[in-house]
Design a protein around this nucleic acid. Structure first.
Length: 513
RNA sequence: GGCCCAUUCGUCUAUCGGCUAGGACGCAAGAUUUUCAUUCUUGAAAGAGGAGUUCGAUUCUCCUAUGGGCUACCA
């Protein structure tokens, strides 16, 4: 009996979605699409203290940018809504009552302060079968006392009553069977009266069940609480439809130790967020992949390969390719260090496949940043420029360093190049070059190159010196695309103007020795 | 501390008992070029350690070590 594949990505809106979360979302999406199933986006805002305004919008925008489509969610709607947990209070209350009535849970009045004291007094204190009879709860208090306290408005929590001494099995699609003893689990808080909200554990199980989730695909940090979740399914009598669990290996810090955290980005100089994030409380800005010039396709491809492989050597894959090939059989079990160097390479590779005209459009904002008005140039000019230099960039913004000279005359001339390529005779040769360029009938690259090279050879000049002095005059450094392609684009007038300028300036800059 | 998970080049990874251990990023060298890049070619680079099972272990089991996660009225 095939169950419809329904998966969910369930972030909590406590800040920007970080790249590890993005990967979890991606794997959920790939799995869902691979099986023709549904992808649900559920907002888990059960911690009222940690709510951050703007975080939910950020999540939506980030997933949309990456092309991770959502079938059911807060914005999309769907048959099992609401998809935001703070709007499902009635449902949780009802389910808490079911557990209470079935004697699978109990009410506890111990305050956080009391528990804190207990923990510092008793080493390894755990609220469980071995200690619950010493605490202040509905198991130790008379029923009327419990009622009196609640009626008096005393705050309480509902705890899951874990029965000790039995093994709990979790069947994980990546790791296989994991068994733990129920004794190590504590009587988890499922609901807090203070904000009339459940905790993650309860909300998660109830929602996954009600939303008919078939596979729970989440980070490895949830593996230790998976047995608790299994027990909850049992307590509700939902064993038959319990989802398959899949715990993904974590994304680790590239340098030292531990899992990749939100602060690592700024520390190590690469984004850990898909989009730039402006923290509403601190005003801090964290960089994002989008703003750093990454293409979403490159980010998706790169992320997909951090913890999964297609089973062969293929590396460049579109979303469609990934969907077709994705399976948990090729997911790795161990955490992956976040090697952002390879991310650059992916971006480079994807950039090469971007159409020149489109790349030109993407480059326009960068031009503006550097004080160049793109409207002063034709689209075809910018398109030809980017087409000429795109092979050497990793990011759109790198284009500027490679082709600024197409938009402005050199501001200075590379001193090392002057030393190597500009001698006392050079100005005279450059003056001669100007004559030759003027004499050219056709200034196009193909037509201009041979006559000029012939001239250099016939005069017995040193090819490298003349050409590099030429380049130095026009570009300002000894770098860039083919020389005659540059001059063709720049045009005769501008080319000659720059050589004249160089003759003046470089002479002036060089002190007589 | 307790519990759980993991362990192949610097990094991401392939290998589902037969290996001269493959690929990619990065790195190095060479080729090409009037420059810098790109590109191409080549190279260096790995099975944590110890037992066991087996004709044969990177692959299976155990121990040790190391790394990671969890251990909240956070997710």
């Amino acid at each position: 009996m095939e169950r419809e594949v329904r998966v969910r990505f369930a972030p909590s809106p406590t800040g920007p979605l970080h790249i590890g979360g993005v990967r979890t979302a991606l794997y959920n999406y790939l799995f869902a699409r691979h099986h023709g199933g549904k992808m649900i986006l559920r907002i888990e805002d059960t911690d009222s203290h940690r709510f951050v305004p703007g975080a939910e919008d950020y999540i939506n925008e980030a997933l949309a940018w990456l092309g991770i489509g959502i079938d059911e969610g807060v914005r999309e709607g769907g048959p099992y809504g609401p998809y935001k947990q703070s709007e499902r209070r009635d449902i949780y209350r009802e389910h808490v009552k079911m557990l209470l009535d079935a004697d699978r849970a109990y009410i506890a009045f111990d305050t956080p302060e009391q528990l804190e004291t207990k923990r510092s007094a008793v080493a390894n204190f755990q609220y469980d079968a071995s200690t619950r009879m010493e605490m202040t709860n509905s198991l130790t208090l008379p029923a009327d006392e419990v009622k009196r306290r609640i009626d008096a408005g005393e705050q309480y929590v509902v705890r899951f009553k874990i029965e000790p001494g039995r093994p709990v099995e979790v069947n994980d699609l990546i790791r296989g069977k994991v068994t733990i003893k129920s004794d190590i689990l504590d009587d988890k808080v499922l609901y807090k009266s203070a904000d009339d909200l459940p905790t993650y554990h309860l909300a998660n199980i109830v929602d996954d069940h009600l939303m008919k989730v078939s596979h729970v695909i989440r980070g490895e940090e949830w593996l230790p609480s998976a047995p608790l979740h299994v027990l909850l399914y049992e307590a509700f009598g939902w064993n038959d439809t319990m989802p398959q669990f899949v715990h993904l290996p974590l994304l680790l810090k590239p340098d030292g130790k531990g899992k990749l955290s939100k602060r690592d980005g700024d520390r190590l100089g690469f984004p850990v967020f898909p989009l730039e994030w402006h923290d509403p409380a601190s005003g801090n800005i964290s960089s994002g992949y989008r703003e750093s010039g990454y293409l979403p396709e490159a980010v998706v491809n790169f992320l997909a390969l951090l913890g999964w492989n297609p089973g062969d050597d293929t590396e460049i894959m579109s979303m469609q390719d990934l969907i077709e090939k994705f399976s948990f059989e090729h997911c790795s079990k161990s955490g992956a260090k976040f090697a952002f160097e390879k991310g650059k390479w992916f971006n480079h590779t994807y950039l090469q496949n971007v159409d020149d005209a489109q790349l030109a459009q993407m480059f326009k904002p960068v031009l503006r940043e550097h004080g160049v008005n793109p409207n002063d140039y034709s689209d075809s000019y910018i398109t030809r420029v980017v087409g000429m230099v795109k092979g050497r960039i990793n990011f759109v913004k790198d284009l500027w360093d490679q082709c600024a000279f197409f938009f402005q005359e050199p501001e200075s001339y590379d001193p090392k190049a002057i030393k190597k390529r500009w001698s006392a005779e050079t100005p005279a040769i450059m003056a001669e070059l100007i004559e030759r360029l003027n004499a050219l009938e056709d200034f196009s690259s193909a037509a201009a190159e041979q006559p000029i090279l012939d001239w250099i050879t016939s005069k017995g000049y040193h090819m490298g010196n003349v050409m590099n002095a030429f380049r130095l005059s026009v570009v300002g450094e000894c770098k860039g695309p083919h020389m005659f392609d540059i001059t063709e684009l720049l045009g005769r007038e501008e080319t000659i103007r720059r050589i004249r300028l160089a003759i003046e300036r470089i002479k002036a800059d060089e002190p007589a020795v």
